[in-house]
Nucleic acid binder design. Structure first.
Lengths: 213, 213
DNA sequence: GTCTATACTCTGATAGAC
DNA sequence: GTCTATCAGAGTATAGAC
């Protein structure tokens, strides 16, 4: 499982990008994801990213225009992935199965890409300054459409009558919590086991009971 | 509703603290809470706090030893409040009512003190370096005790058989989400209304259905 | 492509006048 | 108690050798 690589709009942009360049950019982004997702944009430093990637600080800036460009690239790569699970929800499918499958996809995303989840969480905590446009347009439209589908299902008595927006928010909250608050969960349950252990069964139980007509 | 004021171990600590001092310290903490909860510890600056409080930067450092001391004071004041709702859960009460009342207390905390919730979230995202001790001891013990109560209730058939730890985590996730992700919710639903609007009814419905024996 | 050296700005904290 | 001035260190970014 790996995140899609969307954007390519960074230097060096003259001739075609070599494999070395691609590889070093990826190494930098990996180290940067670790740092940005932990400390947020302003709290992260190029020194930390340089140390994490094994490259010198000026060398980072050979591959990316600026600290901001690295961060922007990470967010851009993330956003498409972020919508995908919700896009897969099928209005023609079985309501309960579709909603639970969506929850499961989000949970797996949190389990497999906790740093990406924390990067997103950091951005929202800061007031979403860099992804406000994405949220107000792409995400909002998708949520509105999905809420209509959920409302229609409730109206038809195929799921219990629940507020569709809060239903969606609840799935986000419950799944992302296992990534964003993993440190806390680890300290309470013991850091040795996966924070999402048992979460899937619990959440299935929760949504099965909530949605039963 | 106001948070308790616990710690007093900051300068000026010689003679008794005057009302002016108390008031200015409170003004500083207010401004600092806004900045720290948005940008995290490293991302926050004394300049921002000075601007927000209307005091000069050296003046902040007359009332507090350092940037770290301001942050520590905010966390200290928060932590007691953080445990209180769970402490109030009564093992002798009605199981469903107790759990739902706990959820409601947490939700009101998120609604009334969203900045405190975001301060906590920021700290956890960073790996909880400053409150690790609190989580590993005070919080963990309280959670373990509560989990035992919940497990006994499930064992006795007074609530549905659910994983007690995930039940607690779910309450944290669902309630704090309305504070921590308020920016996102506002951009999706319209910033004009309270992000927690409708949340209480939805969460009551959710836990009523989940816990029914 | 990668490094050392460095310019320049921001940031936390202190000195000292008032 | 509050301010102006300022220091030392960290931070982003660039210049230029190799």
């Amino acid at each position: 499982m790996s995140l899609p690589q969307i954007s390519d709009a960074e230097k060096p942009s003259g001739p075609r990008r070599t494999r070395i360049q691609q590889r070093n950019r990826q190494i930098i982004l990996d180290a940067a994801l670790e740092v940005f997702s932990t400390h947020g944009f302003r709290g992260a430093t190029l020194d930390q990213i340089a140390a994490g990637s094994g490259l010198s600080k000026p060398n980072l800036l050979y591959y990316f225009d600026s600290k901001d460009a690295i961060h922007r690239e990470l967010l851009t790569r993330l956003l498409g992935t972020w919508l995908e699970p919700l896009r897969k929800l099928d209005p023609a499918g079985d309501p309960q199965a579709e909603i639970i499958a969506y929850m499961r996809r989000k949970l797996h995303l949190a389990r497999d890409f906790p740093r990406e989840s924390r990067l997103f969480a950091n951005e929202i905590l800061q007031g979403a300054p860099r992804i406000e446009d994405f949220i107000r347009n792409d995400l909002r439209d998708l949520v509105d459409d999905t809420a209509q589908v959920l409302a229609a299902w409730a109206q038809a008595g195929r799921i219990a009558p629940v507020d569709p927006y809060h239903l969606i928010f609840s799935i986000w909250a419950l799944t992302q919590h296992y990534a964003d608050f993993a440190a806390q969960i680890g300290m309470i349950r013991g850091a040795d086991h996966d924070p999402t252990d048992g979460a899937e069964a619990f959440l299935e139980q929760l949504y099965t009971r909530l949605l039963a007509p």
